[in-house]
Structures are given as structure tokens and as C-alpha cells.
């Protein structure tokens, strides 16, 4: 399938979030085998959401390498129960997300579990970029650039959710080290084209992703690329 043949339209709106022609793309395949129940491509700068059924596994492919996939999760049947960074970190006693990490809700319950991971560690400290925080981080001239919070709000609103439902999130394929003196920030990624993470739903989960359009830090190597989302079902894990 061709990946870079989108026709150019004339517009005065600042667009950004386009990857360089010739960027290496590796669409890869599901990390956990099974019947494929969903297989979608997410364009740079685009939001995405789906309900992943309990027992099903979502593979996210970092097609172009070091493309942050900002991610929120909700109990699909009661969205007031949602992903909680502090509960996830407290239960595992560690600040980074790796294979085996249980992604917990604010009630302390497992939403999803990382069952496959092809990079050293995933980030859940760095939060999402926004038009608003861009003005702090990079200056007021970035106020009309795109941000993940816009994607989250737009996609969440399709499910009846509002800004009250947005909380600190996960960033697949983003690298945020915490140094000894507490210095923290987004640095060059640990991923590469075709690297994957696989997360198993521990209940029916609404997953919302923003394919990060940030153009001012290395969360996507300054070259926003697509993501591939594959949901597989395995008779051994269906609940």
C-alpha cells in the first residue's frame, strides 16, 4: 500500500506534522498472534480510538520509528474509571513502563497489561503536549501548532467525554528519563521503524490514541510518522 501519495490541497491553515519523503517505514505485524479483529493505520497528527475486548491484544507498531503514541484508557462500561499514572507506578514500584507492567485505573484495578515490548522502556511521566503548554515550553508563537490534547479532546468527545475525563497519559515509544537530581525531559527515542508494543485488555477498554504532531521536541524525531494498530484475538485468552 502506498504511504505518501496524499494529494496536496491548498490551505492557509498551518498543517505541519508531515514526514519527510523517503522516510523509512516498516508496517510490521501483530506482536501476539491470533485472529485479527482490527487492523488500522493512523496518519501523522491523527487521533484514533477503539474498544479492545477483555482478553484481546492491541499491538501498536511504531512504523516510522520514535513516533510517540499518546494513549489514554477507560473502562468501556464506566468511563469514570480510567488510566492512572500514579496507581500504575505505585503498584509496580517503578517509574517506567516495561513488559509485565499492569496499567491500572484510579481504583487500582488492571485495565491492560503490557505483554510484549520491543524497546527498553516506555514513558508514562511526560504527559501529552497541548497548544496551551506549547506556549510555555516553546513560546507564544507556537499557539496555533497542533497538540495531542486537541486530538484527545476531539476523539474523547465522540465518546461523550470532556476535558474532565483527560488525565495524565502513556506515551508509547517516547523516552523521558529522570536523572539523579530530578531533571526530567523528553530526549531522543529508544525505538526504531517497525518496533512494537503489545497490550492485553484485562477488561473491556476504550483506548484513545493521539499520533503526536509535536514539532518542537524529539518525541517523534521531528518527523511525524504513521502508527499501525492491530487487535488480535486468541482463543486461549478470550474472556
Amino acid at each position: 500500500m502506498s504511504t505518501d501519495t496524499v494529494e496536496t490541497i491548498r490551505t492557509t491553515v498551518p498543517v505541519g506534522a508531515q514526514y519527510a519523503p523517503g522516510s523509512l517505514l516498516d508496517w510490521s505485524e501483530a506482536l501476539v498472534p491470533g485472529d485479527i479483529v482490527l487492523d488500522e493505520r493512523v496518519a501523522p497528527n491523527a487521533p484514533w480510538s477503539a474498544v479492545v475486548r477483555a482478553g484481546d491484544v492491541l499491538t501498536i507498531v511504531d512504523v516510522g520509528g520514535n513516533q510517540s503514541a499518546d494513549c489514554l484508557m477507560f473502562n468501556a462500561h464506566d468511563t469514570s474509571e480510567r488510566y492512572s499514572v500514579p496507581d500504575t507506578l505505585t503498584w509496580q514500584g517503578n517509574a517506567y513502563v516495561r513488559e509485565g507492567t499492569v496499567l491500572r485505573s484510579g481504583l487500582g484495578r488492571p485495565l491492560m497489561t503490557v505483554v510484549g515490548n520491543e524497546i527498553d522502556r516506555q514513558d508514562t511521566i511526560g504527559g501529552a503536549c497541548s497548544k496551551e503548554s506549547n506556549t510555555l515550553r516553546y513560546g507564544h508563537h507556537t499557539a496555533y501548532q497542533h497538540g495531542c490534547r486537541e486530538n484527545f479532546l476531539a476523539e474523547a468527545s465522540r465518546h461523550g467525554l470532556t476535558s474532565r475525563d483527560l488525565v495524565s497519559n502513556l506515551n508509547w515509544f517516547m523516552n523521558v528519563p529522570v536523572e539523579a537530581d530530578g531533571a526530567l525531559g523528553i530526549v531522543d527515542g529508544l525505538s526504531a521503524p517497525g518496533r512494537r508494543v503489545a497490550i492485553r485488555a484485562d477488561m473491556d477498554v476504550l483506548v484513545i490514541v493521539s499520533n503526536c504532531p509535536q514539532m518542537n521536541n524529539p518525541c517523534n524525531e521531528f518527523n511525524p510518522t504513521p502508527l499501525r494498530m492491530i487487535v488480535t484475538r486468541n482463543e486461549d485468552t478470550v474472556r
Partner: peptide, 27 residues
């Protein structure tokens, strides 16, 4: 309160004197 922005925007994870508690609205 947005804890992620409170840590990320000052480039500092540990709270101390002078640290702002930021909202998700850039304030």
C-alpha cells in the same frame, strides 16, 4: 492540577521551593 505538566515544563520531577503547580491549560 496536571502533574505531568508540573514535572515536565519546569524540567524537574521533584517539587521544591519555587516549583509551580501547573494546570493543563498552560497556567
Amino acid at each position: 492540577l496536571n502533574v505531568a505538566d508540573t514535572q515536565k515544563i519546569p524540567w524537574q520531577a521533584y517539587l521544591g521551593a519555587g516549583h509551580p503547580l501547573l494546570s493543563g491549560e498552560g497556567r
